[in-house]
Design a binder for these strands. Structure first.
Lengths: 157, 157
DNA sequence: TATTGTTATACTCTATAACTATA
DNA sequence: TATAGTTATAGAGTATAACAATA
């Protein structure tokens, strides 16, 4: 009557979403650190460069630190240190806005544009490798599911 | 010739695995905190109770702090504070092992067993709700993919 | 010598509060 | 009054180093 017990999970915590997400992130963070190490930036710094590049390419007004912080989902006080680091590496420049002198226009330098392109390619390659244990369709479905779960949900409207 | 530009991603970072995993975890952490708040434990503490319960139910020797730390994937110094907290809440007991007096046998108290059962039910319900935006099959596939990606890979053998 | 539990310490990431200069 | 940038500070989480007790 008592059926076979379910195959004891090799990892007793392997069914807990919290544990799985935490460790998936840890694995990715390690791979990301390795992949970006030659470029002298970490994942968060590269994300800042990406955000700046995305809204700088047209003739549109460059982003302020607050703008960038908002798009990145971090506090504006966190962005200060981030921009400090990137500026110290010569990848971005601060410039007081003429229209509103409270704001710092943050722009990619030519070196910043160049590094961003190369580091982004490395990141994409790293992500491909990270997802490689999954069949291509599963990998795509995984990313879609993550987007559904991670991006703001309209439920609490 | 130039086809329509790809629908600008509402989130410019919504295709970055690092960003998605980080935010998915943040969403889950929030939901977890809410769900477990009535029980007075957080997700990590509940995971400790689960690990202890899994290996205590048979007559097997109870786990030491090191054992528990290893199964949880945390440092043994981290486990000290975790057991301190759980002991302070009356959910576990430390007992010097008679066979090896260096080791602390950590056991669930009756209150610990009871709370673990109830809090685990709440956690499972929380996870169901968290995954609810996904069709059932996608949710199952997502968890399987996470297991593949999060649990140790034999690649570096 | 090696291991367990422990403490002290330090480091990362990030948020809050308060200040300044501008608006 | 409100906002942008900045600084100082504090908290969470976790790791490393060193020590005592035990093997």
């Amino acid at each position: 009557m008592t059926g076979d017990p379910p195959p004891a999970p090799a990892h007793p915590l392997g069914t807990r979403l919290g544990y799985l997400l935490k460790h998936a992130q840890a694995q990715l963070a390690e791979a990301s650190a390795r992949a970006l190490e030659p470029y002298g930036v970490d994942g968060r710094e590269l994300a800042v460069l990406a955000v700046l590049a995305a809204d700088t390419e047209p003739v549109a007004a460059p982003l302020s630190q607050s703008d960038a912080a908002h798009r990145l989902g971090v506090d504006r006080t966190t962005m200060v240190a981030l921009v400090d680091a990137l500026e110290g590496k010569g990848l971005v420049e601060r410039q007081r806005s003429a229209q509103d002198r409270r704001r710092n226009a943050v722009r990619l330098t030519p070196a910043g544009h160049d590094l961003r392109r190369r580091a982004e390619a490395a990141r994409q390659e790293m992500e491909r490798h990270f997802l490689a244990p999954l069949p291509a369709e599963d990998a795509a479905a995984f990313v879609r599911a993550l987007q559904t779960l991670a991006l703001p949900r309209p439920s609490k409207a």
